[in-house]
Amino acid sequence: MKKTELMQQKTHARRMRNLKENLTGYLFILPNLVGFLVFTVFAVLFSFFMSFTDWSLIKKFQNIKFTGLENYIDLISDKWFHASVINNVWFLLVIPVMIFLAMVFAFMVNDKVFFKNTFRTILYLPNITSVVAISVIWFTLFNPRSGPINEMLRSLGMENPPQWLSSVVWAKPTIGLLMIWKTVGYYTILYLAALQGIPRQLYEAATVDGASTRQQFFKITMPLLSPTTFMLTILSVMNIFKDWSLIQIMTEGGPGTSTYTIGYYIYYAAFKKMRMGYAASMAWVLLVIIMIFTIIRFRTEKKRDF
């Protein structure tokens, strides 16, 4: 009799402890959980629902109609959407440049130069600067009439320097350049973290064998950094497709449709043209595109195992 009672008491105590542990756990994550349920779970479901309606900021709730696949069908024939997708694919071209530069810089400031901490700090500065300030500064620098960049080109003998942001041809490269300038330092820092994991002996052995710095970079550093490169490529693809503030500030998609991107067009459709349902359907297409790119990248990565 006594034994079972004792056991019962013990299991009871354990249960209480478990209950307490569970309660404390959920209490600790309560803010997170609420945020997750409202701003992720509910928001995702709601946005999916929204994409099948003609939801609008200016419409009353009762007047919102279910339109089925209409939004998605409209996208197929929307010229602005086509332009956005094509521009986005164009912008993907900056990724290799950005990643290669970051890798080189990281290789350098890891241990190849003097004052490495100063360089690290300087490279990181654009990343912690407001995108509005960056845009404002570069906007004046690229001013086609009297900006210093064109003044310099003119003084070097170029008679008709590019019109930069007001030119259909040059607007995209200019924005691309800005993306690189803003992001490269951040990627450098991420590569530095990965570099610290490469054993020094590898480089020492290579030096003994007479490998040049360039050989060391291409034969040791680059292959061993490939997991980081992989991660950064996916991150860049995602960011290029969804970032919109730089475009909104610099060009508002113009001139013409030359710098429209999906990210910006979603903002424009939802808040300027008041077509939230349509914008939501675009957001879902965006998600699918990002997922396709991620899957492709995963596939190609697997083939190249070493």
């Binding site: 756990g25 992720t40 709601f46 939501a280 957001a283």
Partner: peptide, 28 residues
């Protein structure tokens, strides 16, 4: 803290970090 559903919750949270902000921007 070892509470029921901790790891699956965390995994869910992690996987939703991939979702572009545009999806949740409008409902928010």
């Amino acid at each position: 803290i070892k509470f029921i559903g901790r790891d699956s919750l965390f995994l869910m949270k992690l996987s939703t970090m991939m979702i572009p902000s545009q999806i949740t921007m409008l409902p928010t």
